[in-house]
Design a protein around this nucleic acid. Sequence first.
RNA 1: GGUCCGGUGGCCGAGUGGUCAGGCACAGGUCUGCAAAACCUGCUACGGCGGUUCAAUUCCGCCCCGGACCUCCA
Length: 503
Amino acid sequence: MTDLFIHDSAARTTRRFEPIDPNHVRMYVCGPTVYDLAHLGNARPVVVFDVLARLLRRIYPRVTYVRNITDVDDKINARSRESGEPIGAITARTTEDFHRDMAALGALPPDVEPRATQHIAEMIALIERLIANGHAYAADGHVLFSVPSFADYGKLSGRSPDELLAGARVDVAPYKRDAGDFVLWKPSDDATPGWDSPWGRGRPGWHIECSAMSWKHLGEEFDIHGGGHDLIFPHHENEVAQSVCAFPGHGFAHYWMHNGMLLVDGEKMSKSLGNFMTVRDILDKGWRFGEAFRLLLLRTHYRQALDFTMAGLEEAKAELDDHYAMLSRAPAAPGGGIASQLADWAVAPLLDDLNTPLALARLRDLRTLENAVTVGGSPAVAMERARLTVPPAPGVAAKAFREAAGVLGVAAWNADDWLKGRAPRADAAVPGAMLSAQVSHLQGQAVASGQHDEEADIDAAIAARLAARKAKNWAEADRIRDELKAQGIVLEDGPAGTTWRRA
RNA sequence: GGUCCGGUGGCCGAGUGGUCAGGCACAGGUCUGCAAAACCUGCUACGGCGGUUCAAUUCCGCCCCGGACCUCCA
């Protein structure tokens, strides 16, 4: 395994990744504010940084991946006022929905998933440090960060405080010393959640939670901080200001990574625009569309904008169908040797700032290699790209495929279950946490459909067709095939007999 | 208005100063009772105008178009 390079938003260039401690890589990614179902755009950073976490774990002996849950926020308060549902119920339910949806996208849980409400003490401690260091002040029940006190403010997002003010879209609160100052702590009235603090009963501002939680779980300084591109300003800019000023001499995050926005009809999908589609909407099309959506996300480089279309989702689903068909055909083969060499070749593009589209192209070459040696055909073109001089033995390319696909987190299901559209039963490679979350959500669908009886009917129809074919009664054989096709069952005649799959 | 990112073949989408991306769709072929699957072949593009260079899709400048951010946002 060679070196990893990642694009650092702060440096605005791609840098070789050099961990603070090669024996323990630490990463923080901004998680959801839990007041509503996750939309498609929310899923992008989850999937992107899931791939990064998998890659880091392949390279380094220990990785701590922290992704927070923001369960105190004025949007949550507003939702509660509108619906009458208690705040605790909203956040608990939405957190559970989020876990379920992300699991259905094949995202492994982070190592630590801190809740903002459980880190109020750390936030208060940070704010006290900032006041003591002369970077924050209390005013009118609020505590504000003093932007002019931090010379590097604006460095991350690449703007000067003057520019920021020129385009500011909000009125400046009277208690601010400087128009750019932002809230660390604000007072709560009796109807709003609040915690006792040196400045009275109140609640945290938006940015302080991430500074507090990354500090608590990763320390004053850590390797990678990730999130959506739209968080660079003000969220991440303010995080830097808070953390660096609270802990002078520490660099906070060494690398900043930001994923591009997911668009729909050419515009950013966002809750404020109301043009969003939820992950749940995708899953309602069938459990296989969870992984199809994950593949769709990875087919575009993470820093590019991605325009979501249903046609793209269907294409991703079809690609997975072909992958699983290959996997179900391939014989078992030992790992190591050529298999690991091919897996490394397929994964290698990820080392270049997570070039998932190229890695996926190599996965397709592994599929072609396997198909050529197990089904028949020429593996020459794929061999050339994979720099092979001899065709791999049957099963070897599939073995490599499984290993490389595991880093991308795709093609993780049992191949036969996928093809036959059965209740998902993940392969052993899929960790239990993911399995249980997916099965609990999805198992009901298949069981309710009376799947076992249906499969018996399909097998009977295939047997009847076989008899017709033996009698050279082609009309009857084709009639049976067409009848099954109308039910979404596709038959394939091969040398080893007839197989079927669900379209 | 300010800052930044992008415009690649019918569609999606990597990448590169000179030699292959890849996928989908489409067309043809091998195989097959037919079909499907699989494999093979074809389809050869880099928004516009200048500049640098022996050579630019790739570097620079300008223009056009799209998008993001400018204290709700993944």
